[in-house]
């Protein structure tokens, strides 16, 4: 089981280094998603399957979609001018694919040899996490709800465009103040 951990962590480090060092934002996002997958495999090995699922669903799912959305919205630099056939060139997807295939093979190995390969440490199942989350840490859960609602409102407020005032009277008032 240690070997699997070392392979997954090496892949995570490689993918993260490629994330930080790559020039194109979309390439960096692909590598970051792969790095999140690798860390999720590490969580699985560590005996935290719930955290592994959350890592995939929330990080690689929703947060990365936000990033892709913003990058496509900004439409940076020469990205709009570039030919579309160049978008699916081999150099873009080969690196992330190799790393994710290696991770997939690891996952298959874990699933097939489930009985023979003990997890690295004691497994903590989702039910325990849920009980602890909604008994001891209930106050922090509510604070998290505050944080999320203020995040939504803040993002809406910051992200809106400047208002264009068409009315003559309002325009004057805007200039005076």
């Amino acid at each position: 089981m240690n070997t699997l951990f070392y392979i997954a962590s090496a892949l995570a480090i490689i993918a993260t280094a490629k994330t930080v060092s790559s020039k194109n934002a979309i390439h960096a996002l692909l590598y970051l998603i792969v790095s999140l997958l690798a860390i999720s495999v590490i969580f699985f090995i560590m005996g935290a399957p719930f955290a592994a699922a959350l890592e995939i669903i929330i990080y690689a799912g929703s947060i990365m979609v936000l990033f892709v959305f913003v990058i496509m919205m900004l439409n940076l630099g020469s990205a709009g001018v570039r030919k579309e056939d160049g978008l699916f060139g081999r150099h873009i997807w080969v690196g992330p694919s190799i790393i994710s295939i290696a991770l997939f093979l690891e996952m298959l190995y874990i699933l097939i040899h489930q009985s023979g390969a003990p997890v690295l440490m004691k497994e903590v199942d989702p039910a325990t996490v849920g009980k602890l989350l909604f008994s001891k840490y209930i106050l922090v859960v509510e604070l998290g709800a505050f944080l999320l609602i203020s995040g939504i409102i803040g993002a809406y407020h910051i992200g809106q465009k400047d208002k264009v005032i068409h009315h003559r009277f309002l325009q004057n008032e805007n200039n005076n103040s």
Binding site: A48, F50, A51, L54, E55, I58, Y59, S62, I63, L66, F67, V70, V124, V129, L132, L133, Y137, V140, G144, L147, L148, S150, G151, I152, G154, A155, Y156, I158, G159
Partner: peptide, 20 residues
């Protein structure tokens, strides 16, 4: 794992404001 869930919440809120 509970702390990880809180970090995840914080990251989601931070990313939405940061991207805006």
């Amino acid at each position: 794992q509970v702390m990880f869930i809180f970090i995840l919440t914080m990251a989601a809120a931070e990313v939405s404001v940061g991207l805006a």
